[in-house]
Computed example of a mutant assay.
Amino acid sequence: MSTLTEVQAKSAPIISQIQNEAVRLATLKLIERCYKRGVEIRITQGFRTTEEQNALYAQGRTTPGPIVTNARGGQSYHNYSLAIDFVLIKGGYNMQYDGDSDGIADWVEVVTEAKALGFAWGGDWKSFKDDPHFEMSFGLSLADLRSGKRPSSTQISKAISQINALDDKEEERMSEQLEKKLDEFKKAAEAQFTALDEKFKLLEKRHAVPAWADKLLSDMKQKNLITSTNDKGYDFSTIAQMMKNAGMLEKTFLDHVAQINKGEHKNESK
């Protein structure tokens, strides 16, 4: 994938000729916003002179080539720096091409971004659709423009403010996403900490001598069955209690075990 600077350079000569400041800014933002979505575009048309428009109108009529426009000189928003045309750098004019494999056709992604920036799309026209075409009319008809009317400075400033506001909304959206991610991370960390804390408490319990075993361990120490009561935990205390319940700590049982051990020792010495 090319860098954003490389993609911008492909359209720079045409964009530099766009006289309307709002349209020029929107075009630059369109390239940038599409690039962020993984879609690279090139601007193929911007400002078009009356002579260029007449030559394009003649194509397919009095000169070779297919018909590409129904507009004569002065009858296109291109002639007033209010329109642009684009093409996918990868995918060309294939409107089904999905180069970034996100399940959305790249063409649709470009149109979505263009409309967000304030452009009207030629693909929405009822007749003679112009799918690569975007324009900003500022509420002026072609007849208005031919009569000399132009977008006011107030209209242009408002359009620029709305275009720049998209960046603020984007930053706000990204900030909200980041905050959501941090909140999810915090909750996951808290859950993990709680689980670890419970395990730690369980380990503490297993290593601590329960209150009910104090007398039992003290008796075992007096019988020299253990040397200390301090290093005996919950598991040992439980086993000791089971031994006591089974009579294995009674003197008669212990004497019997001692006799057995003594007998085994004698047999080993023979």
Score class of each variant (00 low, 15 high):
167 D>G: 14
152 S>N: 03
170 E>D: 13
54 N>M: 09
257 V>H: 06
38 G>D: 02
256 H>R: 12
19 Q>W: 06
186 K>C: 09
17 Q>F: 03
45 Q>G: 11
52 E>C: 08
38 G>A: 10
47 F>V: 05
134 F>C: 02
231 D>I: 10
32 E>T: 05
17 Q>R: 10
189 A>R: 06
95 M>G: 04
199 K>G: 09
124 D>L: 03
76 S>R: 03
84 I>R: 05
138 F>Q: 05
229 T>D: 09
76 S>W: 00
203 L>Q: 09
222 Q>E: 12
257 V>F: 15
253 F>E: 06
63 T>N: 10
222 Q>A: 15
202 L>I: 13
162 Q>T: 13
6 E>G: 15
151 P>I: 03
117 L>F: 07
120 A>L: 13
135 E>R: 11
59 Q>E: 14
160 I>Y: 06
77 Y>L: 04
198 E>D: 06
136 M>Y: 02
254 L>P: 00
145 L>T: 00
36 K>R: 07
215 K>N: 14
26 A>F: 03
206 R>G: 05
242 M>I: 14
262 K>S: 15
27 T>G: 03
171 E>D: 15
10 K>I: 04
124 D>H: 06
85 D>M: 02
206 R>C: 10
190 E>R: 00
69 T>E: 09
57 Y>G: 06
97 Y>N: 01
52 E>W: 09
213 A>G: 03
163 I>M: 01
169 K>R: 07
26 A>G: 00
69 T>G: 10
2 S>I: 14
8 Q>M: 12
175 S>I: 12
21 E>N: 08
124 D>Q: 05
157 S>D: 13
249 L>P: 02
224 N>G: 02
164 N>L: 15
184 E>D: 08
111 V>D: 00
24 R>C: 01
230 N>C: 09
4 L>F: 10
30 L>E: 02
141 S>R: 06
229 T>C: 09
244 K>C: 07
83 A>S: 07
109 E>C: 05
4 L>R: 04
223 K>S: 06
151 P>V: 02
2 S>Q: 15
193 F>N: 09
29 K>F: 10
217 L>V: 14
155 Q>G: 08
105 A>C: 01
162 Q>K: 14
96 Q>R: 03
15 I>E: 02
33 R>D: 11
242 M>S: 14
194 T>L: 12
44 T>P: 09
126 K>Y: 11
218 S>M: 12
56 L>D: 04
151 P>K: 04
209 V>S: 12
122 G>F: 01
185 F>W: 11
69 T>D: 09
242 M>D: 11
49 T>C: 08
225 L>N: 03
21 E>I: 06
195 A>T: 11
38 G>V: 08
103 G>E: 06
199 K>A: 12
236 F>S: 00
29 K>Q: 10
228 S>R: 10
207 H>P: 04
200 F>I: 15
